[in-house]
Design a binder for these strands. Structure first.
Lengths: 231, 231
DNA sequence: TCGGCTTTGTGCAAACATTCACAAGGGCGT
DNA sequence: ACGCCCTTGTGAATGTTTGCACAAAGCCGA
């Protein structure tokens, strides 16, 4: 992910760590709303979101003073404020490039289109994939990328191609006007200054888990040793 | 993700931020090795991994002093050291729960099995999915979860079910002895102290991108305004 | 052998993030 | 109308991460 410098607390700057948590809060708030809950305290919401309540309050305080002391937060109102801050009150057309297993899984993913995100097209370079219907979309050929992006004013692109094709696809997306990219290909993308890239990488997550798993195993051993030593 | 307290720089404690980057370095190193490169400087490797070179050196210094001043790092040797630190010199059997679009995509993902991770089983609760061959595996019924975990000594579980089933699956995994979980379901899991959870959430990543996209758009406006004012 | 060139490894300071602890403030019962 | 109780919002302390800048150290050529 490319961090712009950002004055972190300027007139409007919300800390990056906070931004990353707002969607989690939003999801918890939606669950509460569907539950019929009208107001929620920072403590309750924090538990639902899996964070510390002081952190939650500080996070929300960056958006404004939307709580009522002694009472809590109005769920509906907070949903609206968080949505607005995240830019979810507008529609974001998205192109997905790569209609392999992952691309199709993404296109089928319900939560995808649910809140503000709309799949403008699912593209693939392989003619064999083209035309096949996936989740009420038909796969279109990569040649149409530029046309689709212009027509739908797409600013977010999702790369679900093999690593080898990712940089090429990325360059074309950027050239066509995309400024935000979600990259599922296991590689580093290089992009101009003004483009944001976020990376989702299964294999990296597994390796991080492996590290901790190993550490836990080793700790178990050394604890045993420590007990022997201590006894 | 559940952070154990960890003294951040104890006798063996590697900072969490560093751990998260080691897999990226490792991938870059593999690419260099396949390329035939024998040694690499921190600057080159940093570029390949998309980070600052001072950061890379500090990260690597946590594993030991494996560089040669004036020369750089031996690629093969560093691959080994990083792999060892991450726990990738051993085999990690993994169960994937949920054989929907995502679960199948994961099972088919090549990079998955490539380095130390082996899919012990792909499970699904839906009898209609069971038996279907996916990537040289056959889908097995969730009832067999406990047996599979015991038999293969699985300690890592991947949850690729709908959000509604995730907590239940998680509880069963934990009860059967899994201590590391990679969760693709869009929900917060609650687990005992000793279990690590990492979350991969497409919709959250998109929302973070939307936030930055909106900010860029707003900045564009205010920059335009500023120019008007400044002129 | 020695001096110069290059690159690592790290002390330090600044930026960023988390958490505690509590004052300020609002509702509710009496 | 008043005071109690509850919860927010935030100052201050602490912990973590980043990045600069440079001394320590290895290699190479003369």
């Amino acid at each position: 992910m490319s961090h712009r410098p950002m004055s972190a607390h300027g007139s409007h700057g919300i800390p990056e760590a906070t931004v990353a948590r707002l969607p989690v809060y939003l999801r918890a708030l939606y669950a509460l709303a569907e539950n019929g809950t009208a107001t929620v305290s920072s403590e309750e919401l924090a538990v639902a979101a899996g964070v510390n309540s002081a952190k939650l309050r500080k996070d929300l305080s960056h958006l404004g003073s939307y709580g009522t002391r002694g009472v809590g937060y109005d769920v509906q109102y907070l949903v609206y404020q968080v949505s607005r801050e995240l830019g979810l009150t507008q529609d974001w057309p998205v192109v997905i490039v790569g209609a392999g297993n992952l691309g199709r899984a993404l296109a089928n993913y319900g939560g995808f289109a649910s809140r503000g995100f709309r799949i403008a097209a699912l593209l693939d370079a392989d003619a064999a994939q083209v035309g096949g219907p996936v989740a009420s979309l038909s796969v279109r050929h990569s040649d149409e990328m530029e046309a689709v992006i212009k027509e739908h004013r797409v600013s977010i692109g999702v790369i679900a191609t093999p690593a080898g094709s990712a940089q090429g696809v990325c360059d074309r997306l950027v050239a066509a006007g995309v400024t935000s990219i979600l990259n599922f290909a296991p590689c580093v993308l290089s992009v101009p200054e003004h483009v944001d890239v976020r990376k989702v990488d299964l294999s990296i997550e597994l390796q991080i888990l492996a590290f901790h798993a190993q550490r836990k195993a080793a700790m178990g051993n050394s604890v045993a040793d420590a007990q022997v030593v201590a006894t």
